[in-house]
Nucleic acid binder design. Structure first.
Ligand code: ZN
Ligand code: ZN
Ligand code: ZN
Ligand code: ZN
Lengths: 127, 127
DNA sequence: TTAATTATTGTTATATTATAACATTATGTA
DNA sequence: TACATAATGTTATAATATAACAATAATTAA
Protein backbone atom coordinates (compact mmCIF):
# COMPACT_ATOMS: atom_id res chain seq x y z
CA UNK A 1 0.00 0.00 0.00
CA UNK A 2 1.53 3.28 -1.07
CA UNK A 3 1.49 6.32 1.19
CA UNK A 4 0.07 9.62 0.01
CA UNK A 5 3.33 11.08 -1.29
CA UNK A 6 4.44 7.77 -2.73
CA UNK A 7 1.18 7.48 -4.66
CA UNK A 8 1.35 11.03 -5.99
CA UNK A 9 4.88 10.54 -7.20
CA UNK A 10 4.27 7.09 -8.59
CA UNK A 11 1.32 8.41 -10.60
CA UNK A 12 3.48 11.11 -12.17
CA UNK A 13 6.15 8.58 -13.15
CA UNK A 14 3.67 6.09 -14.50
CA UNK A 15 1.92 8.69 -16.63
CA UNK A 16 5.18 10.02 -18.06
CA UNK A 17 6.06 8.63 -21.44
CA UNK A 18 9.73 9.14 -20.81
CA UNK A 19 12.07 8.71 -17.88
CA UNK A 20 11.59 11.57 -15.50
CA UNK A 21 14.04 13.30 -13.21
CA UNK A 22 13.62 14.00 -9.52
CA UNK A 23 13.51 17.76 -9.82
CA UNK A 24 11.10 17.55 -12.71
CA UNK A 25 8.84 15.44 -10.49
CA UNK A 26 9.25 18.04 -7.77
CA UNK A 27 8.13 20.77 -10.15
CA UNK A 28 5.08 18.69 -11.11
CA UNK A 29 3.95 18.04 -7.57
CA UNK A 30 4.44 21.42 -5.99
CA UNK A 31 0.79 22.28 -6.57
CA UNK A 32 -0.06 19.16 -4.56
CA UNK A 33 1.86 20.40 -1.54
CA UNK A 34 5.10 18.49 -1.97
CA UNK A 35 7.58 21.30 -1.74
CA UNK A 36 10.98 19.89 -0.87
CA UNK A 37 13.45 17.68 -2.77
CA UNK A 38 13.71 15.35 0.18
CA UNK A 39 10.03 14.53 0.03
CA UNK A 40 10.51 13.45 -3.56
CA UNK A 41 13.70 11.52 -2.93
CA UNK A 42 12.18 9.66 -0.02
CA UNK A 43 9.26 8.53 -2.12
CA UNK A 44 11.60 7.59 -4.96
CA UNK A 45 13.78 5.52 -2.63
CA UNK A 46 10.78 3.62 -1.36
CA UNK A 47 9.32 3.08 -4.82
CA UNK A 48 12.66 1.76 -6.06
CA UNK A 49 12.96 -0.48 -3.01
CA UNK A 50 9.58 -2.10 -3.58
CA UNK A 51 10.15 -2.41 -7.31
CA UNK A 52 7.40 -0.11 -8.56
CA UNK A 53 9.94 2.07 -10.35
CA UNK A 54 13.52 1.78 -11.51
CA UNK A 55 16.32 4.28 -11.68
CA UNK A 56 18.05 4.64 -15.04
CA UNK A 57 21.51 5.07 -13.59
CA UNK A 58 23.18 6.55 -16.64
CA UNK A 59 20.52 9.24 -16.84
CA UNK A 60 19.64 9.93 -13.21
CA UNK A 61 16.02 9.42 -14.06
CA UNK A 62 13.16 7.16 -13.12
CA UNK A 63 10.66 4.96 -14.94
CA UNK A 64 7.73 2.84 -13.80
CA UNK A 65 8.37 -0.89 -13.88
CA UNK A 66 6.73 -2.56 -16.85
CA UNK A 67 7.56 -6.13 -15.80
CA UNK A 68 5.53 -7.18 -12.75
CA UNK A 69 8.09 -5.51 -10.52
CA UNK A 70 11.16 -7.43 -11.69
CA UNK A 71 11.12 -9.54 -8.55
CA UNK A 72 11.51 -6.38 -6.57
CA UNK A 73 14.12 -4.78 -8.80
CA UNK A 74 16.73 -7.50 -8.62
CA UNK A 75 17.07 -7.95 -12.35
CA UNK A 76 16.67 -4.97 -14.61
CA UNK A 77 17.55 -4.32 -18.24
CA UNK A 78 16.85 -1.31 -20.41
CA UNK A 79 17.36 -0.11 -23.94
CA UNK A 80 18.24 3.54 -24.28
CA UNK A 81 18.21 5.53 -27.49
CA UNK A 82 21.18 7.87 -27.52
CA UNK A 83 19.43 10.23 -29.87
CA UNK A 84 15.89 10.74 -28.53
CA UNK A 85 16.56 9.28 -25.07
CA UNK A 86 13.64 6.90 -25.33
CA UNK A 87 14.02 4.18 -22.72
CA UNK A 88 12.26 0.88 -22.62
CA UNK A 89 12.44 -1.93 -20.16
CA UNK A 90 13.58 -5.22 -21.61
CA UNK A 91 11.72 -8.35 -20.74
CA UNK A 92 13.55 -11.36 -22.06
CA UNK A 93 13.47 -14.66 -20.22
CA UNK A 94 16.58 -16.04 -21.81
CA UNK A 95 18.57 -12.92 -20.96
CA UNK A 96 17.36 -12.74 -17.38
CA UNK A 97 17.89 -16.44 -16.82
CA UNK A 98 21.43 -16.15 -18.13
CA UNK A 99 22.26 -13.11 -16.03
CA UNK A 100 20.62 -14.36 -12.85
CA UNK A 101 22.82 -17.42 -12.88
CA UNK A 102 25.98 -15.61 -13.89
CA UNK A 103 29.01 -16.15 -11.68
CA UNK A 104 32.28 -14.31 -12.09
CA UNK A 105 35.67 -15.97 -11.93
CA UNK A 106 35.99 -15.24 -8.22
CA UNK A 107 32.91 -17.38 -7.73
CA UNK A 108 30.93 -14.44 -6.48
CA UNK A 109 27.20 -15.04 -6.66
CA UNK A 110 25.17 -11.96 -7.35
CA UNK A 111 21.92 -10.83 -5.80
CA UNK A 112 21.12 -8.18 -8.32
CA UNK A 113 22.06 -6.72 -11.67
CA UNK A 114 21.30 -3.75 -13.85
CA UNK A 115 21.98 -3.71 -17.57
CA UNK A 116 21.73 -0.72 -19.88
CA UNK A 117 21.96 -1.09 -23.65
CA UNK A 118 22.61 1.96 -25.82
CA UNK A 119 21.89 2.48 -29.47
CA UNK A 120 19.40 4.10 -31.80
CA UNK A 121 15.71 3.33 -31.64
CA UNK A 122 13.83 2.51 -34.82
CA UNK A 123 12.67 6.08 -35.40
CA UNK A 124 16.09 7.56 -34.88
CA UNK A 125 17.94 5.01 -36.97
CA UNK A 126 16.07 5.94 -40.16
CA UNK A 127 16.64 9.68 -39.76
CA UNK B 1 48.68 10.19 -26.57
CA UNK B 2 47.32 11.71 -23.40
CA UNK B 3 47.57 15.40 -22.69
CA UNK B 4 49.13 16.70 -19.49
CA UNK B 5 45.93 16.88 -17.45
CA UNK B 6 44.62 13.65 -18.87
CA UNK B 7 47.82 11.87 -17.88
CA UNK B 8 47.83 13.28 -14.36
CA UNK B 9 44.25 12.23 -13.82
CA UNK B 10 44.64 8.85 -15.43
CA UNK B 11 47.63 8.11 -13.18
CA UNK B 12 45.57 8.86 -10.07
CA UNK B 13 42.76 6.58 -11.21
CA UNK B 14 45.07 3.78 -12.20
CA UNK B 15 46.91 3.85 -8.88
CA UNK B 16 43.72 3.87 -6.86
CA UNK B 17 42.68 0.46 -5.59
CA UNK B 18 39.03 1.47 -5.55
CA UNK B 19 36.75 3.46 -7.80
CA UNK B 20 37.43 7.12 -7.28
CA UNK B 21 35.12 10.09 -7.49
CA UNK B 22 35.65 13.27 -9.45
CA UNK B 23 35.97 15.56 -6.45
CA UNK B 24 38.31 13.16 -4.74
CA UNK B 25 40.48 13.28 -7.85
CA UNK B 26 40.27 17.06 -7.75
CA UNK B 27 41.48 17.07 -4.17
CA UNK B 28 44.40 14.82 -5.15
CA UNK B 29 45.56 16.95 -8.05
CA UNK B 30 45.28 20.42 -6.59
CA UNK B 31 48.96 20.39 -5.68
CA UNK B 32 49.70 19.73 -9.36
CA UNK B 33 47.89 22.89 -10.40
CA UNK B 34 44.55 21.45 -11.45
CA UNK B 35 42.22 23.63 -9.47
CA UNK B 36 38.75 23.48 -10.99
CA UNK B 37 36.15 20.72 -11.28
CA UNK B 38 35.82 21.34 -14.98
CA UNK B 39 39.44 20.50 -15.59
CA UNK B 40 38.85 17.15 -13.95
CA UNK B 41 35.57 16.48 -15.72
CA UNK B 42 37.04 17.30 -19.10
CA UNK B 43 39.85 14.85 -18.61
CA UNK B 44 37.43 12.24 -17.32
CA UNK B 45 35.18 12.68 -20.35
CA UNK B 46 38.09 12.19 -22.69
CA UNK B 47 39.46 9.19 -20.81
CA UNK B 48 36.04 7.56 -20.85
CA UNK B 49 35.68 8.31 -24.56
CA UNK B 50 38.96 6.65 -25.46
CA UNK B 51 38.28 3.71 -23.17
CA UNK B 52 41.14 4.18 -20.69
CA UNK B 53 38.69 4.46 -17.81
CA UNK B 54 35.05 3.59 -17.15
CA UNK B 55 32.40 5.28 -15.11
CA UNK B 56 30.62 3.15 -12.54
CA UNK B 57 27.21 4.68 -13.11
CA UNK B 58 25.56 3.50 -9.93
CA UNK B 59 28.34 5.01 -7.86
CA UNK B 60 29.35 8.12 -9.81
CA UNK B 61 32.91 6.96 -9.71
CA UNK B 62 35.68 5.99 -12.09
CA UNK B 63 38.02 3.04 -12.57
CA UNK B 64 40.85 2.31 -14.97
CA UNK B 65 40.02 -0.22 -17.64
CA UNK B 66 41.51 -3.63 -16.92
CA UNK B 67 40.51 -5.21 -20.25
CA UNK B 68 42.57 -3.77 -23.12
CA UNK B 69 40.17 -0.84 -23.30
CA UNK B 70 36.97 -2.84 -23.89
CA UNK B 71 36.98 -1.93 -27.56
CA UNK B 72 36.75 1.68 -26.56
CA UNK B 73 34.18 1.19 -23.80
CA UNK B 74 31.47 -0.37 -25.87
CA UNK B 75 31.00 -3.39 -23.68
CA UNK B 76 31.50 -3.09 -19.97
CA UNK B 77 30.58 -5.27 -17.02
CA UNK B 78 31.39 -4.89 -13.35
CA UNK B 79 30.85 -6.67 -10.09
CA UNK B 80 30.16 -4.42 -7.13
CA UNK B 81 30.23 -5.45 -3.48
CA UNK B 82 27.38 -3.75 -1.68
CA UNK B 83 29.20 -3.99 1.62
CA UNK B 84 32.79 -2.84 1.00
CA UNK B 85 32.12 -1.22 -2.39
CA UNK B 86 34.90 -3.19 -4.05
CA UNK B 87 34.44 -3.05 -7.80
CA UNK B 88 36.03 -5.29 -10.36
CA UNK B 89 35.75 -5.34 -14.08
CA UNK B 90 34.40 -8.57 -15.50
CA UNK B 91 36.13 -10.13 -18.45
CA UNK B 92 34.11 -13.05 -19.73
CA UNK B 93 34.06 -13.91 -23.40
CA UNK B 94 30.85 -15.84 -23.27
CA UNK B 95 29.05 -13.01 -21.50
CA UNK B 96 30.34 -10.32 -23.81
CA UNK B 97 29.63 -12.37 -26.92
CA UNK B 98 26.09 -12.94 -25.73
CA UNK B 99 25.46 -9.30 -24.89
CA UNK B 100 27.10 -7.89 -27.98
CA UNK B 101 24.76 -9.84 -30.18
CA UNK B 102 21.68 -9.20 -28.08
CA UNK B 103 18.67 -7.77 -29.90
CA UNK B 104 15.50 -6.67 -28.19
CA UNK B 105 12.04 -7.48 -29.45
CA UNK B 106 11.84 -4.22 -31.39
CA UNK B 107 14.80 -5.45 -33.39
CA UNK B 108 16.97 -2.66 -32.10
CA UNK B 109 20.64 -3.41 -32.51
CA UNK B 110 22.83 -1.96 -29.80
CA UNK B 111 26.16 -0.23 -30.09
CA UNK B 112 27.05 -0.36 -26.48
CA UNK B 113 26.11 -1.79 -23.11
CA UNK B 114 26.97 -1.46 -19.47
CA UNK B 115 26.20 -4.13 -16.92
CA UNK B 116 26.56 -3.84 -13.16
CA UNK B 117 26.22 -6.86 -10.88
CA UNK B 118 25.69 -6.38 -7.15
CA UNK B 119 26.34 -8.76 -4.31
CA UNK B 120 28.86 -9.53 -1.61
CA UNK B 121 32.50 -10.12 -2.37
CA UNK B 122 34.27 -13.11 -0.88
CA UNK B 123 35.61 -11.22 2.11
CA UNK B 124 32.28 -9.66 2.95
CA UNK B 125 30.25 -12.82 2.50
CA UNK B 126 32.08 -14.65 5.30
CA UNK B 127 31.70 -11.83 7.79
C1' DT C 1 56.39 28.05 -42.78
C1' DT C 2 52.54 30.42 -42.36
C1' DA C 3 47.65 30.13 -41.82
C1' DA C 4 43.81 27.68 -40.47
C1' DT C 5 41.81 24.21 -37.64
C1' DT C 6 41.23 21.48 -33.72
C1' DA C 7 42.27 20.08 -29.06
C1' DT C 8 43.41 21.44 -24.61
C1' DT C 9 43.69 24.50 -20.76
C1' DG C 10 42.31 28.12 -17.37
C1' DT C 11 38.78 30.58 -14.82
C1' DT C 12 34.46 32.11 -12.73
C1' DA C 13 29.98 31.25 -12.03
C1' DT C 14 26.09 28.38 -11.79
C1' DA C 15 23.07 24.32 -12.51
C1' DT C 16 21.72 19.79 -11.11
C1' DT C 17 21.39 15.93 -8.10
C1' DA C 18 21.14 14.27 -3.47
C1' DT C 19 21.48 13.99 1.70
C1' DA C 20 21.93 15.58 6.87
C1' DA C 21 19.60 16.82 10.86
C1' DC C 22 15.78 17.61 13.52
C1' DA C 23 10.84 17.94 14.70
C1' DT C 24 6.24 16.24 14.00
C1' DT C 25 2.38 13.33 12.64
C1' DA C 26 0.26 9.10 11.10
C1' DT C 27 -0.16 4.12 11.01
C1' DG C 28 0.21 -0.44 12.60
C1' DT C 29 0.53 -3.76 16.45
C1' DA C 30 0.77 -5.96 21.17
C1' DT D 1 -3.71 2.21 25.63
C1' DA D 2 1.06 2.22 24.81
C1' DC D 3 4.68 1.16 22.02
C1' DA D 4 7.05 0.82 17.73
C1' DT D 5 7.59 1.87 13.01
C1' DA D 6 6.81 4.47 8.91
C1' DA D 7 5.90 8.65 6.74
C1' DT D 8 5.92 13.63 6.58
C1' DG D 9 7.50 18.55 6.86
C1' DT D 10 11.21 21.89 6.94
C1' DT D 11 15.65 24.22 6.59
C1' DA D 12 20.10 23.93 5.35
C1' DT D 13 23.84 22.04 2.93
C1' DA D 14 26.64 18.54 0.44
C1' DA D 15 27.99 16.36 -3.77
C1' DT D 16 27.99 16.03 -8.68
C1' DA D 17 28.25 18.29 -13.10
C1' DT D 18 27.99 21.91 -16.81
C1' DA D 19 27.74 26.80 -19.14
C1' DA D 20 30.16 30.48 -20.97
C1' DC D 21 34.09 32.83 -22.25
C1' DA D 22 39.11 33.61 -23.01
C1' DA D 23 43.63 31.96 -23.91
C1' DT D 24 47.14 28.67 -25.39
C1' DA D 25 49.07 24.56 -27.54
C1' DA D 26 49.20 21.00 -31.02
C1' DT D 27 47.99 19.36 -35.58
C1' DT D 28 47.12 19.79 -40.49
C1' DA D 29 46.84 21.77 -44.96
C1' DA D 30 48.05 25.18 -48.29
ZN1 ZN E 1 10.90 -3.73 -13.88
ZN1 ZN F 1 15.39 7.44 -30.67
ZN1 ZN G 1 37.32 -1.99 -19.67
ZN1 ZN H 1 33.05 -6.65 0.00
Amino acid sequence: MLSKNQQIIFDIIEKAKEPIKAYSILFNVQKKGIKAPLQVYRALDKLVEIGKIHKIESRNSFVACKNSNCQISKATAFSICESCEEVSEISDNKLSKYLKSFQNKAGMKFKKYNLEFFGLCKKCSVK
